[in-house]
Amino acid sequence: MILMPNFGVVVAGPPRTVHLLNNSEQPATVFSILESGQKQVPLVSDPLFMDLMKKLASVYTGKQQTRMEAKGPRFEVADFLVKLGTVTMNQNFKGVLVEVEYRPCVVPAYCWELIREFMQGFLGTCAPAQAPVYLQNRMQEIYQPLDTIQQYLEQFREYRKAVTVR
């Protein structure tokens, strides 16, 4: 389950947004991604950071933007982990996200084909032909939990922009 409350921050300069994400796979961690124009700074920290952001929220003249959630069942199939997430934005249903994780491997380039084949097995034609945009530059690097979060962020951003259900 991924939760994402959102803080918009207005300071001198370009407007900045802080995204706070929680993942139920890593219950002891809070991921924060600060977007300022083109630059992105991620931060991985203890859950108390949310409390600090609440204090800072009173400092910043930001509005809390929409809260997005992807919730659903979790399946383990041999070495794969499949999570089906129903995406809701402020209690409005937006769509369904499918997350597939191949656990033994840490480098995306080695197992992307395997994951795609596996997805084709149950998604059929919906299975993407290309790796997600975020990962395309990072195929040879070691995968981190932060990368999962970044991918979710990307998807949530798409959902925000989208008007219809995806």
């Binding site: 961690t29 991985v44 920290s45 203890d46």
Partner: peptide, 12 residues
């Protein structure tokens, strides 16, 4: 180390 290194449920 568990928080900043994002350890998962199983490890916790």
């Amino acid at each position: 180390l568990a928080g900043p290194t994002a350890v998962d449920r199983h490890e916790l």
